[in-house]
């Protein structure tokens, strides 16, 4: 095993995954985050060294997300199941090992403090309702029913969305509706996204964006 990172070993990555499975090395990922894949911009240019992202520019927070989830997204950009003119050229030269390394690096970063809520109380209340109760008359289950308690994520398939940037959440819901993003397993997000009204999208994005994220922790 190439595994050299003490912190990763501590959280038990070696214990819980098959010994043959490739592991990301956060220290190597740090290099890639600073230097990029050779042809594009370095990750840090948009996501920051700390993985905090940027709400105004709709750059997602990566800090504390599940490593396997982050890695899958990079592979999906390269496979064309998730289309982004910004991301694709920046990750297309990464090797599989580098993808794992970058994912391990960002997964390890501490989650930033919650951002001040945008939007009025009524909008936030509507967002909270969607996140925790859904809108069953339109067959929209609560976000929580897949993204887990307080929407902090479940495993590597259902990412934490609490404390993700609101602008990014809105943009992604639109991407599912348009088909620009279709890498959701079993089309689980597509149906939900297309049933939401514009107002509901605004509301749920504002609400989730105002929540404090909790790191996925050692789930890789």
């Amino acid at each position: 095993m190439l595994q050299r990172n003490g912190r990763l070993t501590l959280v038990g990555a070696l214990l819980f995954s098959s010994a043959l499975q490739a592991q990301g090395v956060a220290a190597d990922g740090r290099q890639v985050v600073m230097q990029g894949d050779g042809s594009g911009a370095p990750c840090m240019a948009c996501h920051g060294m700390d993985g905090a992202g940027n709400n105004a520019a709709s750059f997602p927070r990566l800090a504390g997300l599940d490593a396997d989830y982050i890695a899958k997204q990079m592979r999906d950009y390269n496979a064309g199941t998730r289309i982004s003119a910004i991301m694709q050229p920046n990750v297309d030269n990464l090797s599989e090992q580098q993808i794992l390394d970058v994912a391990a690096y960002y997964a390890e970063q501490a989650v930033p403090a919650a951002q001040a809520a945008t939007g009025n109380e009524e909008l936030l209340a509507l967002g909270e309702k969607l996140a925790n109760r859904g809108d069953w008359d339109q067959y929209i289950p609560a976000c929580e029913s897949c993204h887990g308690p307080d929407n902090q994520g479940v495993g590597s398939t259902f990412p934490g969305i609490a404390g993700q940037h609101g602008n990014y959440i809105r943009q992604q819901l639109h991407a599912w509706r348009s088909g620009a993003r279709h890498n959701d397993p079993n089309q689980l997000m597509t149906g939900v996204a297309e049933r939401l009204t514009e107002q509901q999208i605004e509301a749920v994005a504002a609400y989730l964006g105002s929540r404090q994220a909790v790191a996925a922790e050692g789930e890789q």
Binding site: D137, Q138, Y139, T190, G191
Partner: peptide
Amino acid sequence: VMSTQVVASDAKVPV
């Protein structure tokens, strides 16, 4: 009896 906004026939994941 459903409230408005019936899922359109071209829905990718119809109900």
